[in-house]
Design a protein around this nucleic acid. Structure first.
Lengths: 182, 182
DNA sequence: CGCCCTTTTGAGGAAGCTCAATTACAGTGG
DNA sequence: CCACTGTAATTGAGCTTCCTCAAAAGGGCG
């Protein structure tokens, strides 16, 4: 039973639901700096998944009592907090579609494009090369593929001139083509 | 831009996000009587997916203005409405896991088990046989399989003694085994 | 240098897809 | 009552995609 939520200030976090596929389970969400990790625990009071940090992280712990006090005097803020959880849900729907209806190449490309878009939003400026917190096996857990096949798929994307993932850095060699593929 | 939300009173509705796989796109959510279809349009003011009825339906149209009036005087109600959208999100996460980490047999079994659980909740009493609003091609759109393979998978479940889907009726020949498989 | 973790590559196999034909079934009109 | 039609379900054959297992190659760090 939770009485606080986490706001991610720095680092990178994934949310996982248990499954037999991987030791850690399936990755169902990414969280970038500036995002709430488990705001839904505020009305829900419990968590139906695990929270895993993949790097050094800094978080703000926000007591639910404090949130209650804040929104009781500000219905507009309440609306905004609700909206943040709805954006989460919208992304979930996209993930269902991606992992159900796209083949490996498009799936990984689309995943990396989402990562790009969100890291850009968190960082404030578009870059053609930036740190990627996920290893290939993490991408596998998030896309429903095996690590081996992710490796092959990344090679295809690299040879296509889309992007290069190497030693923790993702380089977008051709953002337009990546978006096209994914 | 929406200024109202739908409460499903009777019938059956699916929510779809566009994809190239199927004409209608990927089914990302089921809605049973008693559930809000698009409550998230209240804070969000727009819809990022399609709403499709698969049967005759009766809905209540709820103006957002009315919702605003209601919750302004009742913070507890606001909390409950928020919670309903969070349950939706939790189910989304389960769908991501199911369609990413489960094989066809377990995937379809789990899907039918969810359908069973939710139709039971909506109907008020457990039954071993009840109407199934989805055709095999709809199940395919919801599980990320092809209609042909759903057909084969249902045959396997039938021969396993789990359940039988025939002419719009789903019969649970062995609920325990179905849960076990899925 | 040696160790551990991650990535890459190969070969073979299994799961699921595609295409195509057949069957079942309900509705419709003669 | 029976052909005729259109939709949904089933079945088969061949193929593609992805998985599994196993081994090799990098790469960072003690």
């Amino acid at each position: 039973l939770l009485n606080h939520s986490l706001l991610l200030l720095d680092g990178f976090i994934v949310r996982c639901v248990p499954s037999r596929q991987s030791r850690r389970g399936t990755v169902v969400a990414l969280q970038f700096p500036g995002e709430f990790v488990d705001l839904h625990a505020f009305p829900l009071k419990r968590l139906d998944h695990d929270v895993v940090s993949l790097s050094e992280t800094t978080v703000a712990i926000i007591e639910h009592e404090a949130l209650s006090d804040l929104i009781s005097g500000d219905p507009e803020l309440a609306r905004k907090l609700w909206l943040m959880t709805l954006v989460d849900a919208s992304i979930h729907r996209h993930w269902v579609m991606r992992n159900s209806a796209m083949r490996a190449l498009a799936r990984v490309a689309n995943f990396l494009a989402e990562y790009d878009a969100r890291v850009t939003a968190a960082h404030g400026a578009e870059r053609d090369s930036f740190p990627m917190a996920l290893r290939q096996s993490d991408i596998a857990d998030a896309t429903g593929l095996t690590a081996v096949h992710v490796s092959r798929t990344l090679r295809d994307l690299r040879e296509d001139g889309c992007c290069t993932l190497s030693s923790g850095m993702l380089t977008l060699d051709n953002r337009a083509r990546l978006h096209d593929v994914g």
